[in-house]
Design a protein around this nucleic acid. Structure first.
Lengths: 340, 340
DNA sequence: CAAACGATGGCAAGCGGTTGCCGCCATGAA
DNA sequence: TTCATGGCGGCAACCGCTTGCCATCGTTTG
């Protein structure tokens, strides 16, 4: 049978049978020696392992997956690969997955819940699990999906689905206090994408702080994620007459900053801007962005650990959800209220 | 018979045999109908396809891979997921791969050639091919690897290995001319990582331009990729007394910019800075970076097309290597020579 | 001392598809 | 009318590995 590609110098790859032949045991024993060491005699195991090393045996993951059901692959779904927020997530997942011997499948859902379900459904047999870094799915759909395939979400809280959540909402308190202490009374919240769960959570938190201070914050938006939306967002904020704004995330905030420069609005003199996440770029944009620093990479790592421990039946029970704290990083984009 | 359309209802996944049973044909016919449509009677195929749709059949890629040798997965190797340069690459590969029905495996090689070989070797049976976005491998090792598994490189030219190359070296001419026309005579090249092929290519190009103008450019470095190396790089440049510098890539250049601010060196008044690639951030750092804009995403797309056409034996022969042009984008980080 | 047992290893049946090969049947050519 | 031919479908052998079940054998236990 012609194979798609012939590897190496024509010698077909070493299989478990080659090892069996070389050591004079049955293939099943080789399999067990390699995967279930306790099950075979240490001496035999030794011989088998030596032979495997000698022959440079590399297990065929497809074959293994076919018979065992475990594929050794985890999908990581992001809504947009070019959003720097995900770099950190990917780095975190990458590290943990590699350490555990899993392969990472990167999937860009293009901000579409439908695509998310479709792809996940199509690939569910070739995945051991998935990490949803920004699901746009409604709670019910997400819960249903979780029945089908082990899932861990990042920044998304759904009953029954384990999650790693960056507690930006709690940080919103700090951000708002910071602005209020600088004298701002009229503050706008710049809303992110409509179906974004964190966006709603952040707005709720902001509203709560406002109420505590007997202030009313204005909400503008929603705006799609991405720097380009910043122009519209900036204009909208200016229309509200606010002297400060908290922006859904840094990407959008950076876009806002750019637009403000264009319109020659001074930051922070005329308008203070606070972002969320502290992504790549937040520290070197102009002015540097005051933002809620999120442990993004850690979120990725934690999500993977949770997922893997779910996959391993022998692992101890795991917490359903992990909260990761954020902190306010004050930079140049916020300052005392001056104008108005 | 209507089946449950919900996922995870406990019903085991539909196989080719279910379809065969449903339509009264043999499994082999189903297989052919689905993969090799010309081989079966149109009417039969119709029935089979209808049944497949009806039953929501999803092929099991492991099983397919096991018998056919094709896995439907392509690995994309980057040297550091958090380097924004790769965002673009990943976006490009992602799009093309998804369109072609391939899965994308993301691999971070952590700048290590050894890890690169090891991982690739380990996964070669579960891959149809790989795209090396920044191989740190010596030419020979790369060529050897290419014998083993279909490869396409990005920004790396090795005999016998197809590649998508961003012609930054050609752009170096533009960059240097730009600086020279601004009056700069003493220009430094800030070198990137030692084993980086593009780094060498860029330096060669810069040197050539310098020679053409009877100037001598200084080279400082090497510096590892990453913003943090920018401090050392900036200091090194200042030591040379140059009035302008061309930096291996934007990431490093942004680091340089930051350091210069720290040291209160004005850009571009005291030192002009040119970067390479035009990554995320180059336009909003301070001052905005003059840089060689590279078609990064396109490079990813092209690389995938080349790889896929290599995998498809029926595809027309393909060019060995594609050059992608860059252009100089002048922003605020370069200006006339003033000081010294 | 016999029965029960635990440790080991082999057998063989899949896992879900793919594909070489064969057979059947309806055509068209001789 | 006969035979070569091509279209179409089925059979069955894998692909490489996992795992339930059974056989064997040296021990431990009542």
């Amino acid at each position: 049978m012609p194979r798609a590609h012939q590897f190496g110098s024509g010698d077909r790859p070493v299989t478990i049978n080659d090892i069996a032949a070389a050591t004079g045991v049955a293939a099943s024993t080789v399999s067990r020696a390699l995967n279930n060491p306790g099950r075979v005699n240490p001496a035999t195991r030794e011989r088998i392992e030596a032979a495997a090393r000698e022959l440079r045996y590399v297990p065929n993951s497809q074959a293994r997956a076919l018979s065992s059901g475990r594929t050794g692959a985890i999908a990581v779904l992001v809504s947009d690969v070019t959003n720097p927020f995900y770099f950190g997530v990917l780095r975190g997942t990458q590290m943990q997955l590699k350490a555990a011997g899993y392969a990472q499948l990167l999937i860009d859902t293009e901000d579409s819940g439908d695509l998310e379900v479709e792809l996940l459904h199509k690939m569910r047999r070739s995945l051991d699990g998935a990490i949803l870094a920004a699901s746009r799915l409604p709670d019910r759909a997400l819960a249903a999906l979780a029945e089908d395939i082990p899932l861990v979400t990042i920044n998304r809280n759904v009953r029954g689905v384990p999650s790693a959540i960056i507690d930006t909402p709690a940080g919103m308190g700090q951000a708002a206090e910071h602005l209020i202490s600088l004298g701002h009374r009229s503050i706008a919240y710049v809303s992110g994408p409509e179906r974004s769960w964190p966006n709603e959570a952040r707005w709720h938190a902001v509203k709560a702080v406002a109420a505590r201070h007997r202030l009313t914050f204005t909400r503008v938006g929603p705006f799609p994620s991405g720097r380009r939306s910043g122009s519209a967002a900036a204009d909208a904020v200016l229309n509200t007459g606010a002297t400060a704004c908290i922006v859904f995330n840094d990407l959008l905030a950076i876009g806002v900053l750019q637009r403000l420069r264009e319109r020659e609005i001074r930051v922070p003199e005329d308008l203070s801007v606070v972002g969320c996440d502290d992504i790549f770029g937040a520290d070197f944009c102009h002015p540097p962005l005051t933002t809620l620093t999120a442990p993004i990479e850690q979120a990725g790592r934690v999500a993977v650990s949770m997922l893997l421990s779910r996959l391993d039946p022998s692992a101890p029970a795991m917490r359903q959800s992990v909260m990761l704290p954020v902190h306010l990083t004050v930079r140049g984009s916020t300052g005392p209220r001056l104008s108005e």
